[in-house]
Design a protein around this nucleic acid. Structure first.
Length: 572
RNA sequence: GGGCCUGUAGCUCAAUUGGUUAGAGCAGAGCGCUCAUAACGCUUUGGUUGGGGGUUCGAGUCCCUCCGGGCCUACCA
C-alpha cells in the first residue's frame, strides 16, 4: 500500500465550467483517485476554487454583489456541481481561506528571507474611472501596425503582433470604455525564479516519464529568450491575500495583494489543512502529506491540469517550494491535457458555446458524461466532442455492451432459476478460457491506470465488458437449459460473477452505475480482485440478488438533434 | 515572428519509440442467435499513413520542404 497525494488544477471562481474544463483536470484526477483507493492505497485528493484576481472582482461587480459574497455563492455552486459529477475530493477548498492566507504569507516571508524576492518599481496604466490598475489585456485601442480598433494591450488579435499598452492608439479601458487613463508608478514584489533556473532545469530533465506536453512547455519557458524570467507576484487589487512577510507587515506594500497565481497552488496545501481543521485533526494530519520531514517522504504526488496551467505547476510553484528552503513535497508526476473542442470549434464560456457542467447534469446522469469524456480524454492532442459520437458511445458502450449484458444474465436467471445464484454444474474449459482472457486484460487495464493512460484504460475496460457477451453467445445457456439444466446453472453462475466483477472494475469510470449494479447483486462490499479465478467464484450458489433496472438508457436521435441546436451558442 | 503539438479507414482513435501484410471501436455489408435495452455473436468491405523529396536493408515513426489544424509566447487565469 502506498500513499498518493492527488491535486486537480483549481477551477476559477467566475462562472460554471464547461466539459472541456472538467475533462482537463478534475475528472481524470477523480478517476485516478478512485482507482488508487480501490487498489487499497491511502489517498488524499484535494481541489478548490481559485477566487482571486481581476476577473473575480469584475464578475462580482457585474452581479452587483460584494466580491466576498459572490465568491462564497459561486463556491457553493461549483461544489454542488462537482458533487453531481461524483468528484470524490477529500476536500474542495477555497483559495480565499484563512489557511491559504497564512500559508501564502508564510511562503512569501521565507522566500524573502532566502533572497528570492525583489522589490521592483514599475509603471502601469491606471484607470481613474474604474479606480484600478489595468492589466495589459484590459486595455483596448487601435493597433499601430494594422489599424485594428479592438487590439488588446498585450497583443493584437488581428495581426497577432505583440504589443505594449503604450503602443496603442486611443487607448481605453476594456472594462468601462473610459479613456481617462494615466501611467502611474507602482511597486511590486518579484519572485526571482531565474536564480533557480539551473536547479529547475535539472529537475525537469530528470522527469523522463512525464508527458511530452508537460516537459516541452516547461523547457520552452526555461530556455526561451535567455531563460526563465522573474515574475511579479503582487497586484494592486483589493480582493486577495494581503501582502505580508509571514506575520509581519511589508513596508511599502500596504494595500496590495499577492498575485492569484502565487497563492493558487499554495491552496493545494491549504486545502489539505482545511480538511484537517474541518475534521478536528491536528497539523500532523495534513503535514504528513506535505512535509517530507513529517512523514511525506513516502508520498507520491500527482497533479492534473490543462496545458495552460503547466508553466505555473512545473516551474513557478516548484520555485516557490525550493526557494522556501523548507522540506515541502515537490510534485512527482504532472499529467497535463490538451483541449476538448466542441463540434468543430472551441468551447466558449463568453459565447455560451458548448455544454456546461450544470446543463450536462440536467439532461443526463453523470456516468454518461464521465464515460464519454474519460474514454475520449485529450491526452495526445486536442479532442473533439460531437453529439453523434457521444450518442454512439453511450448507446453502444454503456447500454448495449455493459447494460445489456447485465440485463440478459439477470433476467434469464430470474425466469429459469429465480433471483438467486443457481447451484449445479461446474466451471469447465469455456469458463477457464474467459477467466484467462479477462485476467490478461485486467493486468493491462491496471497497467494503463497506473500509467494514467486514460483512453487506453477505457478501451481495455470496454473489451472486458465485451468478453461477457462473447462468452454468453458461445456458452448459450438458453440452449443448454433445455437438455442440461446443470450446465446452464454453471454458465449463469459464472455470468453473474462476471457482472459483479464488472461492477468493481468499472467503478472508477462510472461510480453510480457500478454501485447500482453491486447493490442489485447484493455485493456492495466487493474488493478489487487480487485473483480473477477466485473473484469469479465470489457469488456462491444460493446467493440472492435482484434484477436491477436498466443501468443505462439510450439517447434517441430526436434528443440528440434537440441538444445539438440547444447548445450551439448563446447560453441562456 | 519564434517555439511546441498535430494530420493515419466515412467518424473517434491505436501502432511496444526504425522492424513482417498499419490495427481497434463505431458506421456499412453478409450470416448466425433468440436470454436480453430491436439487444448479442461471427465474418467482412474500407488506407499511396496530408503532398513531394531524402536517409536506411527497412519509414506512419528520423531529416528537408510545402499544405492544413491547434496551443503557447510570461500583466487573463
Amino acid at each position: 500500500m502506498a500513499r498518493i497525494l492527488i491535486t486537480s488544477a483549481i477551477p476559477y471562481i467566475n462562472g460554471i465550467k464547461h466539459l472541456g474544463n472538467l475533462v482537463g483536470s478534475q475528472l481524470p484526477a477523480d478517476l485516478y483517485a478512485r482507482y488508487a483507493r480501490a487498489r487499497g492505497h491511502e489517498v488524499m485528493f484535494v481541489c478548490a476554487t481559485d477566487e482571486h484576481g481581476t476577473p473575480a472582482e469584475l464578475a462580482a461587480a457585474k452581479a452587483g454583489k460584494p466580491v466576498a459574497e459572490y465568491c462564497a455563492e459561486m463556491h457553493e455552486v461549483q461544489k454542488d456541481l462537482s458533487d453531481g459529477f461524483r468528484l470524490s475530493f477529500d476536500k474542495f477548498g477555497r483559495s480565499s481561506s484563512p489557511q491559504n492566507h497564512a500559508l501564502t504569507q508564510y511562503f512569501a516571508g521565507r522566500l524573502a528571507d532566502n533572497g528570492y524576492i525583489e522589490e521592483v518599481s514599475e509603471r502601469q496604466v491606471y484607470s481613474k474611472a474604474d479606480g484600478r490598475f489595468l492589466p495589459d489585456r484590459y486595455i483596448e485601442g487601435t493597433c499601430p501596425n494594422c489599424g485594428y480598433d479592438k487590439a488588446r494591450g498585450d497583443q493584437c488579435e488581428n495581426c497577432t503582433k505583440q504589443l505594449d499598452p503604450t503602443d496603442l492608439i486611443d487607448p481605453r479601458s476594456a472594462i468601462s470604455g473610459s479613456t481617462d487613463l494615466e501611467v502611474r508608478e507602482t511597486k511590486h514584489l518579484y519572485l526571482r525564479q531565474s536564480l533557480l533556473k539551473d536547479e529547475l532545469d535539472a529537475w525537469i530533465s530528470s522527469k523522463t516519464d512525464w508527458p511530452v506536453l508537460t516537459t516541452s512547455i516547461a523547457k520552452k519557458w526555461l530556455h526561451d529568450e535567455g531563460g526563465l524570467r522573474d515574475r511579479g507576484i503582487t497586484r494592486d487589487l483589493d480582493w486577495g491575500v494581503p501582502v505580508k512577510r509571514g506575520d509581519a507587515d511589508w513596508p511599502g506594500m500596504e494595500g496590495k495583494v499577492f498575485y492569484v497565481w502565487f497563492d493558487a497552488p499554495i491552496e493545494y496545501i491549504a486545502a489539505t489543512q482545511e480538511w484537517a481543521d474541518e475534521n478536528g485533526l491536528g497539523d500532523a494530519a495534513w503535514q504528513r502529506w506535505w512535509r517530507t520531514d513529517k512523514g511525506a517522504d513516502d508520498v507520491r504526488y500527482v497533479q492534473f491540469m490543462g496545458k495552460d496551467n503547466v508553466p505555473f505547476h512545473a516551474l513557478s510553484f516548484p520555485a516557490t517550494i525550493l526557494g522556501s528552503g523548507d522540506p515541502w513535497k515537490l510534485v512527482d508526476y504532472i499529467k497535463s491535457f490538451n483541449y476538448l473542442n466542441y463540434d468543430g470549434g472551441q468551447f466558449s464560456t463568453s459565447q455560451g458555446r458548448g455544454v456546461f457542467m450544470d446543463q450536462a447534469l440536467d439532461i443526463l446522469p453523470a456516468d454518461y458524461w464521465r464515460w464519454w469524456l474519460l474514454s475520449h480524454a485529450p491526452e495526445t492532442s486536442d479532442a473533439e466532442f460531437t453529439w453523434e459520437n457521444f450518442q454512439a458511445s453511450v448507446n453502444k458502450d454503456l447500454a448495449d455492451v455493459l447494460g445489456n449484458f447485465v440485463s440478459r444474465v439477470t433476467k434469464f436467471c430470474r425466469s429459469k432459476f429465480g433471483e438467486v445464484v443457481p447451484a449445479g454444474g461446474a466451471y469447465g474449459p469455456a469458463e477457464q478460457a474467459v477467466t484467462q482472457q479477462i485476467a490478461a486484460r485486467l493486468s493491462s487495464y491496471e497497467r494503463h491506470m497506473e500509467a494514467i493512460e486514460i483512453r487506453k484504460a477505457a478501451a481495455e475496460l470496454r473489451a472486458i465488458w465485451a468478453a461477457g457477451n462473447e462468452y454468453l453467445q458461445e456458452a448459450a445457456p438458453w440452449a443448454a437449459f433445455k437438455d442440461d439444466p446443470d450446465r446452464a446453472a454453471a454458465i449463469i453462475r459464472f455470468s453473474l460473477n462476471l457482472a459483479r466483477l464488472y461492477g468493481i472494475l468499472s467503478a472508477p469510470f462510472i461510480p453510480d452505475a457500478s454501485a447500482a449494479l453491486l447493490k442489485a447483486l447484493d455485493a456492495e462490499d466487493a474488493d478489487w480482485p487480487q485473483d480473477v479465478e477466485a473473484a469469479l467464484q465470489a457469488l456462491p450458489a444460493g446467493h440472492g440478488f435482484t434484477v436491477p433496472d436498466n443501468l443505462f438508457r439510450k439517447i434517441a436521435d430526436e434528443e440528440r438533434e434537440d441538444w445539438q441546436t440547444r447548445f450551439a451558442g448563446q447560453r441562456g
